[in-house]
Write a protein that binds this DNA or RNA. Structure first.
Lengths: 193, 193, 193, 193
DNA sequence: AATGAATGAGCCTTCATTCAT
DNA sequence: GATGAATGAAGGCTCATTCAT
């Protein structure tokens, strides 16, 4: 049975692929319509605007990613295992959701609706608080300003993911996850040698 | 005296700011015309197309950035000093050329002209060769696949720069350069423990 | 008790206000739906089309207005009292039914359905016959071509009503009714000087 | 020689006719383009929006009409001759500029740009001041509130013009001008009989 | 070299209307 | 009778690019 939500999801799926192939700006509503097998009217009925689609995609995508991070932070007690798990999660998530990842990583060019922006800010604030608390509670880790910590922890994975998504990475995903884990742990553990 | 080159430069300056504010895709030739105080005709006379402006900006910007990197690679013999200098250069260059940096970092969305692409590829190949040679010659550094090395070395600086350009960084630039240098060195030195 | 007719009336009420605020052309079915608290489906169930709503509104509004005119024509035997009563009725009716008046006065832009047009033509023919007969029977009034008579009699009230509906009138309604009556009588009585 | 202003004027001419035939709302930019022999781009180059065209038309049309009124007010010293001249001017102007008149009289449905509205308000204020001064200086005319005076003076001509433009008037233009002059003079002269 | 008017393909969005539930 | 999702034609507008002066 075809329900209303199916239409909505078909539009999201089509838009994600299209955005991934041509970028948000170059994707037209006509592309999304053709690929989703729906109609212009339905797209606007459900999302109101092109930015509305991007907003929904962004919010749902980020929520998915963050669910994984939250689970790790709540589960892992050990500093090293936690750091490695976070990096592994990042890289594997990108591998498993390449279109969504491409879209999330390409953000800056899109001007989302105020409502979407607010929802995203809320989600980020929450995750940031969780992460900060987790790190502060680990004596084995160096003390760093939050912005630098974030960059040091995820920057390499982010950068490598961009390469991988661009087809320019030579190393395998699993192997890279391990390597990045090694490097992050070496960089972030408290140096008591 | 107003020379012809002044018109050209006024266009480049205006375009850089506009691209930084609204992104390449959302910037119109009209924006550039208004901001530069020139005319549509002049813009096409000097650059031929919108991509032509982006190409010129990109090539000139990258050349500037790479000049600094090349100097460091040729000057530094010591591994630790070299790594630290590369990171410091990155962060300071972004601070000193925020508009240009914003533009270079946002690349993905722009489809440059074939000629620009080729010129950029040449520059990148040359720099890559230089960098690889420099790293291979340093026994104090870990052995990593080039793509992972690149991500580990510059990822954190890249990520932090994005935050800083977005006004979301809390730490100072100089202090961050030092911290990122510490972390990169800890991560990349050969672990002889 | 909520009866079916309530839905119909809610739609008419909402449409009248909306037409008054934005004009017929600029009012969308969505506006009427939102304001009436009903649904697209119900609107089409009751009226069949946007013009259908306008037609119903127009016919009902005009009938109301004409009822008053007919009563005056049948009641008044005296020329002066009749002229004054017609003008007073016009101005007071506009005051008491501002939304309806705004709508009736703005007609030109609306293309009604053939059925509505026919019904309106019938009503107008009937009223015209009545009015002509009444005027022909009054020796105290000047002899004028019907079109000029109509313009001279109702033009000022029409014009002033437009101003009043637009919030641009300074004088009170009752006072204006009297003044317009004076002027119309002076203009239309047979000049026996 | 075809100058830039020719393009502008061709667009205005075409728009005026189109607005007259189908109304502002129902006229499309495509209609104007086809009829003017120009291009979509040119229309937007010169007027910026559909409302921009209407605004220009409105301002230029009203200016033309008001020039005639101003001339009469400055020339005529005699009350009766002035009143008759104003009415004659109104009716003849409508006959000579039917498209422009139709457009000016149909205003209410159009939402002009703020700039146009302001310019129109200025023009109206100026004319209103002139007219009021002229009337106050005539002891032979009745004393009326400005809004009622305006309605009494021009309402009949306005109403008749609407009929004439709609093809529903039976009387000739010149004859009507005289009749309306008679009636207005009878209505507005101070009644010392 | 500079200017700005002209062009027209293409895109986002609106909206009246239909129809299955 | 009521609801609201679905449809798609149509329109206003943008914008890179061209070209005559």
């Amino acid at each position: 049975m075809v329900t209303a939500q199916d239409t909505r999801q078909a539009i999201l799926d089509a838009a994600l692929v299209a955005f991934g192939e041509k970028g948000f700006g170059a994707t037209t509503i006509g592309d999304v319509r053709a690929r989703s097998g729906t109609s212009t009217g339905s797209i606007y009925h459900w999302f109101g605007s092109k930015e509305g689609i991007a907003g929904a995609l962004y919010v749902e995508g980020l929520r998915e990613y963050q669910t994984g991070v939250t689970a790790i932070l709540e589960r892992e007690r050990d500093a090293e295992l936690g750091v490695r798990a976070l990096l592994e999660h990042h890289v594997l998530w990108v591998r498993d959701n390449p279109d969504l990842a491409r879209f999330l990583l390409s953000r800056r060019e899109i001007e989302l609706l105020p409502e979407s922006e607010e929802e995203l800010a809320d989600m980020n604030r929450e995750l940031f608080a969780l992460t900060s608390k987790w790190f502060r509670a680990k004596p084995a880790l160096v003390d760093l300003p939050p912005d630098v910590l974030h960059a040091a922890l995820l920057g390499p994975a982010q950068e490598w993911s961009r390469h991988w998504l661009g087809g320019r990475a030579r190393s395998g995903v699993a192997r890279t996850a391990a390597l990045l884990g090694d490097l992050a742990w070496k960089a972030l553990r408290k140096d008591d040698s």
